[in-house]
Write a protein that binds this DNA or RNA. Structure first.
Lengths: 343, 343
DNA sequence: GTGAAAGCGCTAACAC
DNA sequence: GTGTTAGCGCTTTCAC
């Protein structure tokens, strides 16, 4: 009797790219063997290794990491969330993070949440959907809802640039309260008595400012004049802020700024107005950006080991992803006041 | 007769996360229907839509984009390659690119190639392996090998920040030669005659410097003094460069810098030495960073529409990814000299 | 050391 | 409008 005609072939033409299958066929081995030759070369014979390497070269095969990630449940993708990438503060951290991850075969996905924390939920969804092996949160305040989701999805999380009392998972940061106190103490020790503070309108900067003011009070100093400017901070805001501070009280002798850019603005405005720094007003910045040391006068500022933060965060994530246990989940990276000319 | 015992169950426990399958079961529909309810809501009945949305909410389902990407051949991932993210020049472009992509449901993957172009090949492999829907090259010189691979893999590519004669695919940039000429013309028109140039050691900056020097020659001016500094440029290098320029010839009356940071350095050193800007020496920067307008003196510089570059690049990629044809593949975004006080 | 089978979680292609 | 089926390209599990 007649054979039934073969059912219609539904074809889903692939991408057309070379696959592991092709490589395996060319090498005369099973796909899984080719896979092993590439990922765990010790498990295959030299003969097979040679043939597979050869086939890879001849075909120009590039493994599809999407497929690999799906099968192995490891995407080798790490997400980083920053408020905004401009505003050079987090830049250094993102850079070292990218580098440290790349060295270990991981790739960085970048997300910007904005300072408002508005787009945060949509962003989180986009991130979690990719099943990254880790998420690095940098200078971000996460909504309660966001926290819950992060906890729920079980992806390793590293919070950075802060020392929160109740970390979601892992953390590498420093105490903003300590920074505020330290700067106040430093200025006091230098004989300054009437403080002003210029601070960006973000949670961490405000915490530093708060601590700065409290420390001044504790030292018995007159009330600190505070100017809050919108984040991200700019040179212009710094200039404007000094104008405002001088308007409020002409006799301040020290200004603490929540960023080096603000400090540069304050110093610029001071020079324009013939106010001498540091003789009449001492200026302290925050961040120790690359240019701080070479300004005139050179800027006294708070140095944060931004590169180390990125490296440590990468270490945390990779250790977790590769099943190593992370003994100490919280790292206080500290900070230091770099004494230069401006204060 | 006895049934053959069922073959041993090989189980591959999944990630344990909620899958589309779970949502579909809960909603009482087939998986594909649930998929449609989420991706193309118009194609399902209101009844189904309601039930599926409900199930999603109840389960906290987050679609696995790895799986989706594998199945649909569209990763909704875009890779950006920059020499280094620090060095605020490309920052603005990366930022607007990230934003523009996020708005359209795409995610950015970041790669740093370093200025040397050394790690470029490994990076390219890591990128291509993710099968991104597009690659944005920013301020990078690609090896011939790299070019070949990019062409071969068929992924849409946008080169930015330059106007190369033979683009790989799409391009949004401007002419560095024109910039160099324009700056020389500008300074000449301002009555300056003895030029110095401080330039970072990267391909584009050097092209600007070259054109600047040639234009000066064409204008019948004396030989331009050139100082080349390693990339990325810094304020310090700017200061050092002015020292060097003055050492070589005390009578220059204009300095063109390959970045605003260098220009700030030159101006800082000038002030320290009592050289008046712009009276004795005019200074021109490049980039028009946020702070340029608020320096004292405010910095005359070349403005590049970095944000527009990012947006256009995103548009290019998304159009291609979604099958729309891109009529004009090359966009010259132009530039402008922003006249301020320093020159 | 090597291989066959069975998915990972989703969507394209085709029926009804 | 909804469902069935067959993959996307890889890796895990188990068997030899």
């Amino acid at each position: 009797m007649a054979e039934a005609i073969s059912p219609p072939r539904r074809t889903r033409r692939g991408s057309g790219a070379v696959t592991l299958h092709d490589v395996a066929r060319l090498a005369g081995v099973a796909p899984i063997t080719a896979s092993r030759a590439l990922r765990t070369p010790d498990q295959v014979s030299d003969e097979v290794l040679r043939k597979v390497s050869d086939a890879v070269l001849r075909t120009g095969y590039v493994p599809n990491l999407l497929a690999g990630g799906l099968a192995s449940m490891r995407s080798r993708l790490v997400a980083a969330v920053v408020p905004t990438i401009s505003g050079p503060v987090f830049l250094e951290t993102v850079q070292s993070l990218t580098e440290a991850l790349a060295e270990r075969g991981y790739q960085l996905m970048l997300g910007q949440s904005g300072y408002s924390g508005k787009r945060e939920d949509a962003l989180l969804e986009a991130i979690i959907g990719r099943r990254p092996d880790g998420i690095v949160l940098t200078g971000i305040m996460h909504s309660a809802e966001g926290r819950r989701r992060l906890l729920a999805c079980g992806i390793p999380v590293v919070e950075t640039w802060d020392l929160t009392p109740t970390p979601i998972d892992m953390l590498v940061g420093f105490s903003h309260v300590e920074v505020g106190r330290a700067v106040a103490g430093y200025l006091h020790a230098k004989g300054r008595r009437r403080f002003g503070v210029v601070t960006g309108d973000d949670e961490r900067a405000k915490r530093r400012s708060q601590a700065f003011q409290e420390a001044a009070r504790a030292l018995g100093l007159p009330e600190v004049q505070e100017v809050v400017v919108p984040a991200p901070t700019t040179l212009r805001r710094g200039r404007e802020s000094l104008v405002e501070l001088l308007r409020r009280s002409g006799d301040i002798d020290a200004v603490s700024c929540s960023s080096d850019l603000l400090a540069l603005g304050v110093m610029t405005e001071a020079r324009v107005r013939g106010v001498r720094v540091p003789e009449q007003i001492a200026v302290v910045g925050f961040g120790d950006l690359e240019f701080a040391a070479d300004l005139d006068p050179s800027l006294t500022t708070v140095h944060i080991k931004a590169t180390a933060i990125g490296r440590r965060a990468a270490q945390f994530i990779v250790d977790r992803a590769e099943g190593r246990d992370v003994a100490e989940r919280v790292i206080d990276i500290g900070f230091s006041i770099v004494e230069r000319t401006s204060a």
